[in-house]
Structure formats: structure tokens, C-alpha cells
């Protein structure tokens, strides 16, 4: 993958690459910290069909969504043999009671037997997080467990 970095004097830096389907996709990182998602038009790869300003939270949420998809698929593939085991992702909402709290406080494994196998944060993976791992808003938790356990986990993360 060849990510092209171009300086935009007075604005910031643009980082983008060409996809297999012939679209240019990337971000403009503004100097004041703002991020803009850019997607080229299909009939003219030089121009942008969309340039969407994202807040910091939104940018890391999007990064997590894109990054976690592969992990979830891999895990699903691995657990295919075991019936009843499902992989699911949960995002930590800004109003979650466990926001900025250590994960152990939610006691998810004790209460639901669900394992949190990874936390996705700002596009990076924190594999097998311990109970001390602090949960932040826009984090994405990758969880493995039974259908009922996962439903309970969702409730816990949302309502405590």
C-alpha cells in the first residue's frame, strides 16, 4: 500500500492512496487538529466527490470501524467450529457509565462469561486487554461469547 503524503502550505497535510476500484481515498490533516475525510469522484480522480470534516472522536470511531472489521472476521472464522460462540463489537458511547473507568470495574467476564479480546482505539489494536485497561469514548471492544452473554454485555456497557 503506497500512501502518498502531500504538504498543503497554509492548511496541513494530505495523506491518500489509490484503491483497487480506482478511487483515491484519504484524509486531510488540518494544522489546527481537524481531520477531513476525502473520497475522489469516480469520473475524475483529481477531484473530490466528498470531503467530510470529522471531529477527533468521529475520526477515531471511523478508524476503529474499519480496523475492527478484519479482526471480527478472523475471530468469527476461528470460532466457526464451536456452535453458539459469536464475535461482536461494542462501542463505548460518550455517556457510558464505564467511560474513563478501568475495564475491570464493569466485571463483564464475571457477570456474563464474555471475553473482551481486543480494544480498538484510534485505529490501533490493544490485544487481550487486562482489567486495568481504561475505556475511552469511541473505543471499540471486540467481544467473544454466547448470544445471551453478548446481549447482557451490551446492556452493561450502556447502562451499568
Amino acid at each position: 500500500m503506497n500512501v502518498e503524503e502531500t504538504e498543503l502550505p497554509g492548511f496541513g497535510v494530505r495523506k491518500d492512496f489509490m484503491t483497487k476500484s480506482g478511487r483515491r481515498i484519504g484524509v486531510v490533516a488540518h494544522r489546527d487538529g481537524e481531520t477531513e475525510l476525502i473520497i475522489s469522484a469516480w469520473d475524475d480522480p483529481d477531484t473530490c466527490q466528498a470531503s467530510i470534516p470529522l471531529t477527533g472522536d468521529e475520526a477515531s470511531a471511523l478508524g476503529n470501524l474499519l480496523g475492527s472489521q478484519r479482526i471480527v472476521m478472523q475471530l468469527t472464522e476461528e470460532h466457526k467450529e464451536v456452535p453458539g460462540i459469536v464475535t461482536r463489537q461494542f462501542s463505548i458511547l460518550p455517556d457510558s457509565p464505564y467511560r474513563d473507568q478501568p475495564m475491570g470495574k464493569a466485571a463483564i467476564r464475571t457477570r456474563t462469561s464474555v471475553s473482551i479480546v481486543a480494544i480498538m482505539r484510534e485505529g490501533e489494536v490493544l490485544p487481550s486487554p487486562g482489567p486495568d485497561a481504561i475505556l475511552h469514548a469511541a473505543d471499540l471492544l471486540v467481544a467473544v461469547g454466547t448470544q445471551e452473554g453478548l446481549d447482557a454485555t451490551a446492556m452493561i456497557l450502556r447502562n451499568g
Binding site: T6, E7, L8, P9, G10, F11, R14, D16, R24, G26, V28, E36, I38, S40, P45, D46, T47, C48, S51
Partner: peptide, 22 residues
Amino acid sequence: AKVITDLGRLGNRETPTILSIL
């Protein structure tokens, strides 16, 4: 610079060229 931002052309391929001429 204002026209480029207003028209959402910051991500365009020709924009770095324009800016470096400026």
C-alpha cells in the same frame, strides 16, 4: 484559499500545485 475551502477542493490533486504557486 477561501475559494478552495468553500468549494471543498482541499483534497483535490491540483490543490498542492495552486498552493505552492501562491
